[in-house]
């Protein structure tokens, strides 16, 4: 129990520190008092108009990706699964780019058209990837799922390239967006993504016990009394909602969903009642820090944040793959 309390204390403290660093560091240094002291109007403006929405958006996106990664990994019993490696992020990107490309805006959805299409892209890809992997290999080995993710990811990537090639004027914007970034999005984006963040998180959190049972396989979960079909659907949809909405506001940011749950499990065990909230918290912290690095490391220019996460994520991916294969070989 003490270990669990410690886990939450450390994670929340890290998140607060990350937010503090995120809002104060930059081309202009903003002291933390600005939060409550509005004497310095310029600083206050930078803080509330630029830094804060950026930090919060990074936090929400990081949290979404991390928690859906944790859920996908539990559901598929596959430590290498995350929205990016499964190709789900690419699916969401295609959904989003289609919306931008054709300028679709559905009357009822309005501003939510983009995230909704993005989520649909995520969900469809998710089901195709899992369906195909199951068709190839009923036992759905780790490698099979990842390979299927790569196949779908590559295909969707070429669809994206095609669409980019066809839109000449907006080219730069879409390319920047594709590499993943949370810059200059503003409060609108936060309001757009927030409801989906809550819905998706709730859907996954309601299945935390089921995810624990599913770690022992679908058959075992069935025996333990889990309504596997229904719960699986709920988890896949929850993950797609989170991934889709995150991609809609920030583009494809890879590996957050891989690195964060892995670290969380390594430090504090794989009980999903804690893995999910802790991943959420640490995912937010990680992306806030990565974004901070992305915008300061080659200042005044900015790197897309996806570059930083991939830089950290790929070696971690390699490490987990190595460990799992070694474990299997023994």
């Amino acid at each position: 129990m003490n270990k669990t309390v410690l886990a939450y204390v450390v994670s929340i403290a890290t998140l607060l520190v990350a937010i503090w660093l995120g809002v104060s560091i930059g081309t202009v240094k903003i002291p933390i008092e600005t939060l409550w002291n509005q004497a310095d109007a310029t600083a206050s403006n930078i803080l509330w108009k630029i830094r804060m929405p950026r930090v919060l958006l990074a936090g929400i996106v990081g949290a979404s990706l991390a928690i859906s990664g944790a859920a996908f990994q539990g559901l598929l019993k596959n430590p290498l699964a995350d929205p990016y490696t499964l190709g789900v992020s690419s699916g969401a990107s295609v959904g989003a780019v289609i919306t931008l490309f054709f300028g679709i805006s559905l009357p009822i959805l309005g501003a939510f058209t983009l995230p909704v299409f993005s989520m649909m892209g995520a969900a469809i890809t998710m089901f195709l990837v899992i369906g195909f992997a199951r068709m190839v290999d009923r036992s759905m080995k780790m490698e099979t799922i990842i390979l299927t993710g790569i196949i779908f990811g590559s295909f969707l990537g070429s669809v994206l390239s095609l669409m980019i090639a066809l839109t000449q004027e907006e080219l730069r914007q879409i390319v920047g967006w594709l590499l993943g970034s949370v810059s200059m999005r503003g409060w609108n984006y936060i309001l757009m993504v927030l409801p989906f963040f809550f819905i998706g998180t709730c859907m996954l959190w309601l299945n935390r016990r089921e995810l624990n049972a599913l770690l022992f396989g679908e058959e075992r979960a069935h025996h333990l009394g889990v309504n596997v079909k229904q719960r699986k659907l709920m988890i896949l949809l929850g993950g797609s909602v989170l991934t889709g909405s995150a991609v809609a506001v920030s583009g494809t940011i890879g590996f957050v969903g891989l690195v964060v749950p892995h670290m969380t499990r390594m430090l504090w065990g794989s009980d999903h009642r804690h893995v999910l909230p802790l991943s959420l918290c640490n995912g937010a912290s990680l992306l806030i820090i990565c974004d901070l690095v992305a915008r300061t490391i080659i200042s005044p220019a900015e790197l897309p944040v996806g570059v930083i996460t991939a830089f950290i994520g790929a070696p971690v991916f390699a490490y987990i793959f190595y460990k799992q294969r070694r474990k299997g070989a023994m």
Binding site: N78, M142, R209, L215, F216, R220, L224, G269
Partner: peptide, 24 residues
């Protein structure tokens, strides 16, 4: 139902594993 033995990708503590029996 008692399953046949199989490998797991993630680790659970013994108590957490037994506690899953209370899921229903």
């Amino acid at each position: 139902v008692l399953p046949q033995l199989h490998a797991h990708a993630f680790s659970h503590s013994v108590k957490d594993t037994v506690a899953l029996g209370r899921y229903p």
